[in-house]
């Protein structure tokens, strides 16, 4: 069974064709890095996988565990196992981070027919994850991402990833804006999430992250298509030569 299969996907935003026949197969246990110049459609791919409104699938299809998911609402996709770490995580003042995490986890538990975690165990678990990510527990009381620095927001996305344990993690430039220490912390978090049943689509602009999260495949997205695929050696080549030679 494939975890994710994207078949010949074309997507428009506000009548502009952004993705133009994209193919991607992710098997359980694999990490796929997607690299590409700014504006090539990386976030569009991430958003369309998560089901963001305003993205129009004009042709092709998306399959998760061999089920077609295009008609699923975003929350149904989350229930089915998709998680998007946002490139620009949204601030939600007035909702405490803790409350938000609990609400998400409860919804997912319900959808998976699992019992809702009890409050004490939940609290303990969240605190522990926060610690591994070097996030001050005070952050858990603050509004979701409210007043967080760029790096703190990204770490908060990984905290959600580790707590919610989705089957497919789509990480959209989780490395951008991180200093080297934070990058290592985040990479460690992602590595601890990895197992033989789940998969990662790792979107990044730079090769740097891939020194810490070693991908099984590297794809180059340019002008809405995967124009080149390879192993991590491809990332190193891109670092030296840039993207221009591919397009």
């Amino acid at each position: 069974m494939t975890l994710l299969e994207v078949k010949d996907l074309s997507v428009s935003v506000a009548d502009n064709a952004i993705l133009k026949g994209l193919n991607l197969v992710v098997n359980p246990g694999e990490v796929h890095a997607i690299m590409g110049p700014n504006g090539s459609g990386k976030s569009t791919l991430a958003n369309v996988l998560a089901g963001k409104p305003d993205y129009q699938v004009t042709s092709g299809s998306i399959w998760l565990n061999d089920s077609n998911i295009e008609d699923l609402e975003p929350h149904e996709r989350a229930h089915a196992g998709i998680f998007l770490a946002f490139q620009y995580p949204v601030e939600v003042p007035g909702v405490s981070n803790m409350e938000f995490l609990k609400a998400s986890l409860d919804c997912l538990a319900k959808a998976r027919d699992e019992p809702q975690p009890n409050a004490g165990a939940f609290l303990k678990r969240v605190r522990k994850i926060a610690q591994t990510l070097d996030l001050n527990p005070e952050f858990l009381k603050r509004g979701v991402n409210e007043g967080f620095s760029g790096g703190e927001k990204k770490r908060n996305e990984i905290l959600q990833l580790l707590l919610l344990e989705p089957q497919l993690a789509v990480l959209d430039e989780t490395d951008s804006g991180l200093d080297i220490d934070a990058l290592q912390v985040v990479a460690q978090g992602v590595n601890s999430y990895r197992n033989e049943n789940n998969g990662v689509v790792l979107i990044t602009h730079y090769q740097r992250l891939l020194e810490y999260i070693v991908p099984d495949y590297v794809h180059v997205l340019a002008d809405g298509k995967i124009v080149q695929s390879g192993d991590k050696g491809l990332a190193q080549e891109l670092e030296k030569k840039g993207y221009a030679w591919l397009t």
Binding site: H75, R77, H79, F83, F86, V90, A103, S104, C107, L164
Partner: peptide
């Protein structure tokens, strides 16, 4: 809308 999508993408129903 951005806040709504953020919450919904984490598994909350649109109503929730």
């Amino acid at each position: 809308e951005q806040q709504l999508f953020y919450c919904i993408s984490r598994g909350l129903s649109p109503l929730a």
